[in-house]
Design a protein around this nucleic acid. Sequence first.
DNA 1: GTGGTCTAGACCACT
DNA 2: GTGGTCTAGACCACA
Lengths: 121, 121, 121, 121
Amino acid sequence: MNIAISNTSGTPIYQQLFEQISAQILKGELETGYSLPPIRQAATELRVSIITVKKAWEELERAGLIYTVTGKGCFIAELTPDEILQKRNDMILKQMVLDTAYYKSFGLTVEEVFELLKKVY
Amino acid sequence: MNIAISNTSGTPIYQQLFEQISAQILKGELETGYSLPPIRQAATELRVSIITVKKAWEELERAGLIYTVTGKGCFIAELTPDEILQKRNDMILKQMVLDTAYYKSFGLTVEEVFELLKKVY
Amino acid sequence: MNIAISNTSGTPIYQQLFEQISAQILKGELETGYSLPPIRQAATELRVSIITVKKAWEELERAGLIYTVTGKGCFIAELTPDEILQKRNDMILKQMVLDTAYYKSFGLTVEEVFELLKKVY
Amino acid sequence: MNIAISNTSGTPIYQQLFEQISAQILKGELETGYSLPPIRQAATELRVSIITVKKAWEELERAGLIYTVTGKGCFIAELTPDEILQKRNDMILKQMVLDTAYYKSFGLTVEEVFELLKKVY
DNA sequence: GTGGTCTAGACCACT
DNA sequence: GTGGTCTAGACCACA
């Protein structure tokens, strides 16, 4: 559980959990088949409510990144490297479409975006 | 009032107004010194609540893009080209910092971001 | 809100709500574009928790049957008759696959199932 | 022990055991008077908890399909062909009543159900 | 007024 | 011990 939660960022906690864990899974930092900590333990560790953790876990399951076995726990889904790449690109592209729409609304060209992006990175 | 509002997108309406109008101002599509339509009229035209329009106008004023003359209406701020450029870059960079943080969380390099961004654009 | 809730049936309440409302929508009993009652009112009426109602509403939205506008309410999705038929058949077939698997496990043929089904109907 | 268990299907494991074994008994695949494997052995073979197997066996006994002889094991109940038919029909009809209720809730007629069922089968 | 989020705490079914 | 469900009640953002 290497998670950083911000209570002031405006984005819901459960979404922060979802984003960080899914990023970790898709980067391969969490091995497939391994189990996530029990929701109650995670809730205590992260100092949030059980329900908040559960909501994040549910979204992860819906995204096909983990699977739940009642009475046993939650496990990282066993994905092929191809599937991982696919899901990773899906998530990134989904966000990128929004970002580019924003940039475009200011009349920026791709080149200008590149220029700025290089500096920020 | 060349504005497109989505009720289902998730982003608050007042923010959609703010983003689109500020983009138009910073692109120079709205001449400095010109007046925005009265709040009531804008609300009717856009089919949103007066409160919503007011909130958007307030944010625009706070961002220094418009100014209010009590009893007369709201006017586009008279900015020098330099100031416009400054504000425009501020808004873009602020967003870009968030975007790059997101991309980095997936372990993407600048080059990979470029690659994807080119496709999306 | 023509809903019957059973506390003893074993199926979660939120799922009962989901099933009954989605059935009503797909049968055309709830006109498209009309609003569902506010979750708080529905909760009071049905004598369940707000959260339970919310969970059902969320599933309905995920199924594309309703859409939520924050601050305004939840509305029946505007679907073409074709889309409605499509979604209806999807839901029915999904269940039917399970049913037939059960019948098959007892070695029943289609004809035998027909025979029994006619009696039960 | 020709049993297939799914950890992710949502139906409890003990119920999967119950359904598959009872189906086998009622189809005559398990001879009357024969013994079921000891609980421990079944648990090891199927890779489930002893408690889970025990619960399934208990349900089978409650359904009158097996009987336990303390210290000796569990045996398939000695049923007349008539009794087998009776129990089989009971189980099937019990499920079918639920299924038809579901179909009816969508406003399907028997004929439409036949049509769909034929495809699925 | 609306929905969105979060909390603490409870009970149950499954393993 | 695990997850699944439900509750009552609170605070916030949006319209």
